[in-house]
């Protein structure tokens, strides 16, 4: 996936994501997450869910965003392939996510991700460049 790099960390796995805008960074981070969980290309946008979250800071919002997607997958098997950001401010996000329910016949099994962590978290949001480094607990 363009603009996504896997970071080597002992025991777990990290992601480095770069994007032109903050909105794109949130979209790419979500896609990168699901590319670790399964074969991303095989996910079809068959159903949609609305996500609205608030957090204390931009860093927290990114962690909360990925954890919300992890929760949606772990509780309901929801695999996300398409994200539309409807509203994004430093402490709030509203998004429509499209995807489908995990089917072991169709979807490859990748990493079981327990959580997105604050460990060595680096979020940079400049006017023309955004980047993220985040460690996921496996």
């Amino acid at each position: 996936m363009e603009g996504v790099e896997i970071l080597d960390v002992s025991g777990d796995i990290g992601l480095r994501v770069t994007a032109a805008t903050k909105e794109e960074l949130f979209v790419k981070a979500a896609c990168a997450l699901f590319s670790l969980i399964t074969d991303f290309e095989a996910i079809e946008p068959l159903e949609s869910r609305e996500i609205a979250l608030s957090a204390d800071s931009s860093d927290d919002l990114m962690v909360a965003w990925l954890n919300e997607l992890i929760y949606n997958f772990d509780a309901f098997g929801f695999l996300c392939t398409d994200v539309t950001i409807n509203k994004l401010s430093p402490k709030h996000i509203k998004a429509t996510v499209k995807g489908e329910t995990f089917d072991e016949e169709k979807h490859k099994r990748g990493f079981l991700i327990k959580a997105a962590t604050y460990h060595n978290l680096k979020l940079v949001c400049e006017p023309s460049f955004s980047s993220l480094e985040i460690i996921l607990d496996i």
Partner: peptide
């Protein structure tokens, strides 16, 4: 997943509590 979510849920709560009770954190986790 139940245990993972408990940890995820309480990290921000505990971070706010650290501030509230004046505990200096050298690592957010």
């Amino acid at each position: 997943g139940l245990g993972h979510q408990v940890c995820t849920d309480f990290l921000p709560i505990m971070e706010r509590a650290s501030k509230k009770y004046g505990i200096e954190l050298y690592d957010r986790e």
